[in-house]
Structure formats: C-alpha cells, structure tokens
C-alpha cells in the first residue's frame, strides 16, 4: 500500500514539476502565442484552403480535422519539452540517480499535456462554431469529449516516443516539426484518407489522430458512441503502443547511458 501511495505521489509531483519547470511555453504570452493563436491561425488557414478547394461546400470537414489535429501541439511539442527538458536543464543525471519508479516518472511527463491538449481542441471547436458555423446540434457531446480525450492520450503516446528521441539527438525539433506537419497529411485532417495513394493510407492507419479525427467527424454529423467505439479502441491501442515503445527506449537509454558513462554528454 505504501509503495502504491509513494508511486502515486511521485507520479503527481513529476507531472506538476515537469509541466511547470520544463514546458518552455508555460508563460502567459508564449502560451497564448504558441498554444492558442498559432493553432487557431493554422486551423483557419487550412479551412480557407480547403474551402477554396471544395468551392465552400465542405468546411466542416476541415474545421473538425484541424481542430482535433491541434492535440499534436501538446502531444508532440509539449511532451517532448517535458522529457527532453531534463537534458537541457542538466537534471537528467539526478533523475537517473534516484531510485524512483521509472514508469511513474516517464508517463507522468505526459499527464498535464493530455488536459492541455484537450482544452486546445475545445477552444478550436468553439472557434469553428463561431467563425465557420459548424453545426453541433446533432452531436453527442459526451462521446465527443471521450473522443477528444482518447485522441489526446494517443497523440501523447507518440509524444513520449519523440521525447525519448530528444534524449539522444540534438535535432529533435527538426524531427518533431516534420512529424507534426506530416500528421497534417497522413491523419486525414485535410485530405480524405481514401483519396490518398494506398501506401499513404496504410501509413495513416499506424498513426495516432487518424481514427480520432474520423470519430469526431462521425459524432458531429450525428453518429453515436457505438458507431465510433471501434475507432476509439484502435486509437487508444495505437497510443499505448507508441507510449510503451517510448518507455522501452527510455529504459534502454538509461542503461546505455550508465554503462557507457555518457550521461553528461547526451
């Protein structure tokens, strides 16, 4: 019982401290610019582009796709900062020197970003209703809320894997930015997946967001939770796989760094 309590305390403290101390955008102005205005402007840009492409007939498709895609800002950039931040702050050796439960430490880094990302989607969908008249009258809101939560968790799973890369490469922002922009194509946020070449369709099925975006579109169009349940199960499964891969990489990295004495130079 005591171990469980200690681990929960560690999880919670790691969650709060890593978010406050390592998330570089955690200042009011930077947060507003990078977490609210940038994603909003990106959503407006792709919605207008999509509207231009479709002759203004399919605006909801682009608004919903890009609003859900916003979870990638927290899921990828935020989680990476919370993991890689220890490297830049020089606290990684101390972290690896503690006897703390690694799983609690690792997954705690993503916890706040799940809620942060979900909040970003809600703001974006709100703007979608105000600016582009997206109709939510048929929407099952509790199912939509669950979809947003599941999609954010799965994207944070990918972020955990990317965050581990930040411990072994200095070019992680290059990789992160590239993955973030590739998701704009492969997740189906802006292009219907069935119109993509077959290899791209296959790739998109291995990524988070794809099923979450499809699920959100179905629910806003009046679908039920039962309609999207298989999509949500697939989405959370993908997230767990990525998160677990990240955890394995994290453990492997710790062993290698200790064995080679390369903690200071990573």
């Amino acid at each position: 019982m005591k171990t469980i309590t200690n681990n929960l305390r560690l999880f919670w403290q790691g969650t709060i401290f890593s978010y406050v101390a390592l998330f570089a955008w955690f200042r009011p102005t930077t947060y507003a610019a990078s977490k609210i205005l940038m994603p909003l402007a990106q959503m407006i840009f792709f919605t207008f582009l999509g509207s231009y492409a479709s002759g203004g007939t399919n605006v909801d498709f682009y608004v919903i796709g890009n609003a859900i895609q916003i979870v990638a800002v927290s899921g990828i950039f935020g989680v990476t900062m919370s993991i890689g931040g220890d490297r830049w702050a020089g606290t990684l050796p101390y972290l690896f020197g503690t006897p703390a439960n690694r799983m609690m430490l690792f997954f705690g880094r993503a916890f706040m970003h799940i809620f942060d990302g979900a909040l970003g989607v809600l703001i974006a969908l709100g703007w979608g209703a105000v600016l582009f008249n997206v109709d939510f009258s048929q929407t099952n809101f509790s199912a939509l809320g669950l979809t947003i939560l599941v999609t954010t968790i799965s994207t944070c799973g990918l972020g955990l894997l990317m965050g581990c890369l930040s411990l072994i490469t200095a070019n992680v922002m290059f990789v992160n930015n590239t993955v973030y922009f590739l998701l704009l194509i492969f997740s189906g946020a802006n292009v219907a997946i069935d119109t993509l070449p077959s290899w791209m369709q296959t790739s998109s099925q291995t990524l988070p967001l794809t099923r979450g975006i499809a699920s959100a579109r179905t629910l806003i169009a009046g679908g039920s939770l039962a309609d999207v349940a298989p999509l949500l199960l697939g989405e959370i499964g993908i997230g767990i796989i990525y998160g677990w891969l990240g955890y394995i990489l994290f453990k492997w990295f710790e062993i290698q760094a200790k064995r080679k004495g390369s903690l200071e130079t990573v």
């Binding site: 792709f46 582009l49 999509g50 231009y52 492409a53 290059f174 930015n177 590239t178 922009f181 590739l182 704009l184 194509i185 802006n190 292009v191 119109t195 993509l196």
Partner: peptide, 15 residues
C-alpha cells in the same frame, strides 16, 4: 521540409 509538406497537402487538396 515545411514548404514541401505544404505543397503536397495543397496539391492533394486543390486537385
């Protein structure tokens, strides 16, 4: 990279 990805997206979208 970014302009190339935007180009691919736009080429798909504006077909």
């Amino acid at each position: 990279i970014q302009p190339m990805i935007i180009a691919v997206l736009a080429l798909f979208m504006l077909r």
